[in-house]
Design a protein around this nucleic acid. Structure first.
Lengths: 156, 156
DNA sequence: CTACTTGCAAATCATTTGCAGATGA
DNA sequence: TCATCTGCAAATGATTTGCAAGTAG
């Protein structure tokens, strides 16, 4: 956090694997078989997923001892660090979503089945009720989190 | 969830303890010393809190064996059930906020210190940047969660 | 080579639960 | 009285970590 602003000169068109490679190399990290496999799977599916869902897709690899649970966790953390995944917590469970090559969106969260619906929208206002109606979603409430750095932490 | 809609004929002016009493009684639950103590503390402080913070306020009582950790968890769950507390998860930790006698609001979440700032606002639009600026908060992103029941779960 | 990685097993940590004794209505 | 609670200790379950062996550069 003491490095100031980066130039954001990242080529957004790069495929995920390539983008990750850059991230790893710039940090003196290695491009291993497992990291390759994980990024591959993570970005071959869209939408949100939690570790267990990802693990499911990696079943075979895990059975063959090609990848282990801890490594999945470690790699996901690196992808978040790389700014390629966004991590959130829903009901105690960590959920990840693409933050690379995928548009920003808001969420409709069902309290009964814990499913997460994406809502893509440019006009944020009246999003709540409009989107909700479109999806026949009965709105019980909402929560808006703006994330960032507070004045105190900015050192101001 | 099979009880349909309630009439919402709750007197919002009732003090928390009283409101909780109603909830307990209507469910054949008992008004115990510990539940009384916990509601007392929970609603004597405002703003968000997690279990550890609450436990801190209950230090003495816990030392005296008047209240135990499990009971704190159990009572918090009941307060959520009673609609008096709202529960959310931030970074794996459960955080509670008043949902009784306290206005609805959105949040500014600092990624560095994990602090949560409340933002009270009626006009939801342009809230993000406006509020952020007011608090000298550097916005890095936002997430809006609309909670409710999805079409599937509504049985539609 | 040799520093970074991995898998394994064990450790964490918040939260939950089984159960016998305590207590409110 | 006696069903509901509580505290305790142990269980859970997701995520993390120590460490010796494996491997990328």
């Amino acid at each position: 956090m003491s490095e100031g602003y980066s130039l954001h000169s990242v080529d957004v068109a790069l495929p995920p694997a390539e983008r990750f490679r850059q991230f790893l190399q710039s940090g003196g990290k290695r491009i291993t078989q497992q990291r390759r496999l994980i990024v591959e799977i993570v970005f071959s599916h869209h939408d949100h997923f939690d570790v267990d869902e990802l693990i499911e897709h990696l079943q075979d690899l895990i059975a063959q001892r090609k990848v282990s649970r801890p490594t999945v966790y470690r790699t996901l953390a690196e992808l978040v660090e790389a700014g390629m995944l966004r991590k959130m917590t829903l009901g105690g469970r960590s959920v990840y979503e693409h933050d690379y090559g995928y548009p920003r969106h808001d969420h409709l969260f069902c309290q009964m089945c814990n499913k997460l619906l994406e809502v893509h929208s440019d006009d944020r206002e009246r999003l709540r009720d409009a989107a909700a109606e479109k999806y026949h979603f009965r709105v019980l409430g909402h929560r808006m989190f703006v994330t960032g750095i507070c004045a105190e932490c900015r050192g101001t």
